[in-house]
Write a protein that binds this DNA or RNA. Structure first.
Lengths: 147, 147
DNA sequence: CTAAACCCTCGACCATGGTCAAGAGTCAAG
DNA sequence: CTTGACTCTTGACCATGGTCGAGGGTTTAG
């Protein structure tokens, strides 16, 4: 059904930063921020100085949003975007980045599971009433705060 | 056993902020920062204006460190500390905070496991070479914006 | 006494990921 | 032409958890 998107009334030739922001679901300031941070290439400008975007930027912004949802930092996303313009060599590296990120995620899950076990032990041991001296949570956190 | 700790050579009567920092394993600036942020009560001062701490503050700092390791924010720790001075009512609330924190930790673990699955799928599907157009990682991030 | 080591306050700065305000220019509709 | 909505740049500000420097005063050892 998408026979000709170039003259699509939904995607006019010149779209301003506001239109981009609405389409991508981000704030205008966020777009300018990403440009400053080299996550978006500087767009061409109209005579007035207004930024004049092609529709590709909306894709790029969605890329950024999804990567962010997967826990990539903007720094990592910047690297992914750089790689993705490097044909052929890019794919290998992108996969490696994703694998590295996976390792980090797994590491973080293990850490949190350790924290979870620690909290659980304390909660199970805590009667929920009585003197503070008998609260295992405070005792565990404070050490021997008997004094 | 604890007959007289006040003249213990290990814990002199007046300990300066530097001594506290060494004993608790934190920086001097951190102690002053915690004081500003109401995590530590303002100590009394010597005539010179120097902070003059009792040994309790070291316990309190260790409490803070352990709670931080369990993933509590300073805000949450501040609340725990406030509660822990509220005898009897404190224990109940402390247990509740710990339970709430446990819930957050479990939630975060679930989120990360979802992220992990997402990354894994992409990595498994990626050949690691070839044209960028065929890289499922970039495709997934960039999305099908068919609409 | 002197010098080193310590302490004081105040305020600036780091990264992260934006958000907002001021003051000025631009664009589209009526 | 005017009005209102939009955009421009610059620079400040938010929270988080500190860290560091400047420019003083204090304490302690020799």
């Amino acid at each position: 059904m998408r026979m000709d998107t170039s003259v699509n009334p939904q995607t006019p030739r010149h779209i301003t930063i506001g239109a981009v922001a609405r389409r991508a679901g981000v704030g205008i300031d966020t777009i300018r921020y990403y440009e400053r941070e080299n996550l978006l290439p500087p767009p061409r400008r109209r005579a007035s100085g207004y930024r004049d975007y092609g529709p590709d930027v909306v894709e790029r912004l969605r890329f950024i949003r999804r990567a962010k949802d997967l826990g990539f930092t903007l720094q990592e996303i910047r690297e992914l975007l750089t790689l993705s313009t490097d044909r052929e060599r890019g794919v290998k590296s992108v996969k490696q980045r994703a694998e590295a990120r996976l390792g980090e995620v797994e590491q973080r899950i293990r850490e949190l599971q350790r924290v979870k076990r620690g909290l659980k032990q304390l909660i199970d041991a805590c009667p929920g009433h009585g003197a503070l001296e008998h609260c295992p949570i405070l005792r565990a956190l404070g050490g021997e705060e008997g004094a």
